[in-house]
């Protein structure tokens, strides 16, 4: 859809967080190289939201594209955090899974193709339940296959952050980039409070929440690879650096025995805070 892409040409300066999903991709790729797949004009909306009285979006909140990064072939997906909390349903999930499978095929044919995922998502779209979960499982198995060939780079900048099943997706990526405004966690604060009790985890305590799940903490705890400012050019440099590093010798998600031991030794009787969490996650770590 060259007409569509033509409307998004331009130079971007400043913050990344305020950009729409489509513009985030455009701002990252080599100028003029973005080719969106399954554009909004294909009208591939969620078949489930309308049945439940919820207004759909033409791209189902997910933008997928092929393009070039430093003249290397990449596929990029970006989730629109503002639409239904960036939740992944059947269509949006299948778009990302299909895109990653396309990259796998290209690699098998001998055309190196890496992937970048911009994850602003609360996780599975509850209105689409199992279909969203199935899509997330497909995304995850595609990442595990693709990352053997080429890096799969995840970017979490905020404002939504990355939660639920999609936080596991982020953890499976070859590289994970975060900003101070980005958050990463399996369960959202209110879910944890509901399950563990307000004494354990007060979802209104913003300092505690950001201290534990915010970008600063995640970087300091070694759960992400790069910490960048909310700035288009800083982010773009960081993604390109990760791409240049190639496939990591050991993926974080394959390196589980040491973190598991540290977690098993953790004393949960005392209220956790950012400092103790950081210590527990990094103690005795060499890299």
């Amino acid at each position: 859809m060259s007409e569509l892409n033509a409307n998004f040409q331009g130079n971007y300066e400043g913050g990344f967080i305020d950009l729409s999903a489509r513009k985030r991709i455009e701002s990252l790729l080599d100028s003029g190289s973005m080719r969106e797949l399954l554009t909004p004009f294909d009208r591939l909306t969620s078949p489930w939201l309308e049945k439940q009285g919820i207004v759909p979006q033409f791209d189902d909140g997910v933008v997928i594209a092929r393009g070039k990064l430093d003249n290397k072939a990449v596929v990029v997906a970006a989730i629109e955090g503002g639409f239904q909390g960036g939740s992944l349903g059947e269509v949006g999930g299948a778009k990302i899974a299909g895109l990653l499978e396309l990259a796998i095929e290209e690699n098998r044919k001998g055309n190196p193709t890496a992937a970048v995922l911009m994850l602003e998502t609360g996780g599975v779209r509850l209105q689409e339940a199992n279909l969203g979960l199935a899509a997330i499982a497909e995304i995850q198995s595609a990442i595990v296959e693709l990352r053997q060939y080429q890096p799969v780079i995840a970017v979490v900048t905020g404002p939504v952050g990355c939660f639920g099943g999609m936080s596991i997706t982020a953890g499976l990526c070859s590289y994970l980039i975060i900003t101070r405004e980005g958050r990463l966690g399996l369960n959202g604060p209110q879910v944890i409070e509901q399950e563990a009790g307000v004494e354990e985890y007060d979802s209104r305590d913003r300092g505690l929440i950001w201290g534990l799940t915010g970008g600063t903490q995640r970087f300091a705890s070694g759960l992400v690879d790069a910490f960048v400012d909310d700035d288009v050019s800083a982010l773009s440099t960081s993604v390109r650096d990760c791409l240049a590093q190639g496939v990591p010798a050991l993926h974080r998600s394959d390196d589980i025995s040491a973190p598991l031991t540290r977690l098993q030794q953790f004393d949960t009787r005392e209220q956790i805070d950012a400092q103790r969490a950081r210590q527990a996650l990094t103690e005795g770590k060499t890299a």
């Binding site: 569509l4 979006q57 033409f58 909140g61 503002g82 639409f83």
Partner: peptide, 19 residues
């Protein structure tokens, strides 16, 4: 005219597609 799309389906906003 050419196809155009603006906005998104977020709180207090709307998306408008023209073809």
């Amino acid at each position: 005219i050419q196809p155009a799309l603006v906005g998104y389906v977020g709180s207090g906003d709307l998306e408008v597609m023209v073809e």
